[in-house]
C-alpha cells in the first residue's frame, strides 16, 4: 500500500485499522463491535483454556485429514486430466461445476449420509478444496515442458518415472498454486462444516460465542482463523517463490 507516495508496510496499515477498531469500539456504538483491546484480552484468556485446546485439536484433525485426502485425490486427478485427453474431457466439466458451485448446500445431505461427526466435516473440507487443486494441477500438467517429457522418453523412462520424476516437478508451480488456494478453501470448509454440524470444534465455539453475544471472544476467534489461513497460504507462497526459477527456464 502507498499513501502520498510513501510505501506503508503492511503491519503498519493493519495497526491503523486496529486503532480505528479500538476507537469505534470505545464509542460503544453496537454490542457487535467491542474495543479491539478487549478482543485481544479475550484471545489471551482463551488461548490456554482446555475448551479452546480441544476445539483446535478436533478442528485441526478434520482439516488435516480432509486436506490430505484432497491432495491425494486432487493432484493425481489433475495430472490425469491434463495428460489423458479422455479423462480431461470426461471429468473436466464436473470438476468445473463442483469448483464453482455453492457446496455449503450439500452439507445437510452429507450429514444425512455420514452423520453429525468428523466424517461429515472431513468430507466438507475435501469437497471445498479438491476441485481447485485438480483444476490448477491440470493446467500445470497440460503445459508442462513437452521437450522435458520427450527427454525422459528418449532416455527410456517408464510411464511411472515420467510422471513422478518429470511431470510432477514440471507442474510444481501450478500444483503449489492449487494447493495454496485449496488450503484456504479447506479452512473455509472446516469452519462452515463445523458451524452447520454445530456441535464440535471451532464451529461450536463460534456458535457458543455468537449465541451468547460474547463478541470479544467471537472476534478473537475470527482473527485466529484468519491468521491461520493467512499463515499457511503465505507458507506455500514462500515455497512458490523459492521455485520460481522452474518457470524461468521453461
Amino acid at each position: 500500500m502507498t499513501v502520498l507516495g510513501y510505501r506503508i508496510p503492511m503491519m503498519f496499515s493493519l495497526l491503523a485499522w486496529f486503532v480505528v477498531w479500538e476507537i469505534v469500539g470505545q464509542l460503544d456504538l453496537t454490542i457487535l463491535i467491542p474495543p479491539f483491546s478487549g478482543v485481544i484480552a479475550a484471545g489471551i484468556t482463551m488461548l490456554p483454556s482446555q475448551k479452546f485446546h480441544d476445539a483446535i485439536t478436533i478442528t485441526m484433525t478434520a482439516f488435516l485429514a480432509g486436506m490430505g485426502l484432497s491432495l491425494l485425490v486432487g493432484i493425481p486427478l489433475g495430472i490425469l486430466m491434463g495428460r489423458v485427453k479422455a479423462i480431461g474431457q470426461l471429468m473436466g466439466m464436473w470438476v468445473n461445476i463442483f469448483e464453482s458451485s455453492p457446496l455449503t448446500a450439500v452439507i445437510p445431505v452429507l450429514m444425512a449420509l455420514l452423520g453429525f461427526g468428523q466424517a461429515t466435516i472431513i468430507t466438507t473440507v475435501f469437497l471445498f478444496s479438491v476441485w481447485v487443486i485438480a483444476l490448477d494441477v491440470q493446467v500445470g500438467a497440460k503445459h508442462a515442458n513437452a521437450s522435458l517429457l520427450e527427454m525422459g522418453r528418449s532416455f527410456g523412462a517408464s510411464r511411472f518415472a515420467l510422471y513422478t520424476k518429470i511431470l510432477f516437478f514440471a507442474a510444481l508451480p501450478e500444483i503449489l498454486a492449487g494447493v495454496r488456494l485449496g488450503l484456504i478453501r479447506g479452512v473455509k470448509g472446516v469452519v462452515i462444516g463445523q458451524l452447520l454440524v454445530a456441535i464440535v470444534g471451532v464451529g461450536e465455539l463460534f456458535e457458543l460465542y455468537s449465541r451468547n453475544f460474547l463478541m470479544e471472544e467471537f472476534w478473537a476467534l475470527v482473527i485466529m482463523v484468519f491468521a491461520f489461513a493467512f499463515a499457511i497460504s503465505e507458507t506455500v507462497a514462500y515455497v512458490e517463490r523459492r521455485i520460481e526459477y522452474y518457470a524461468s527456464t521453461r
Binding site: S147, S154, Y246
Partner: peptide, 15 residues
C-alpha cells in the same frame, strides 16, 4: 539405449 538425444532447447530439468 543405443541412441541418445541432444535437444535444441537443452531439455534440462530446472529443479
Amino acid at each position: 539405449p543405443d541412441r541418445a538425444f541432444v535437444f535444441q532447447d537443452f531439455a534440462l530439468m530446472p529443479w
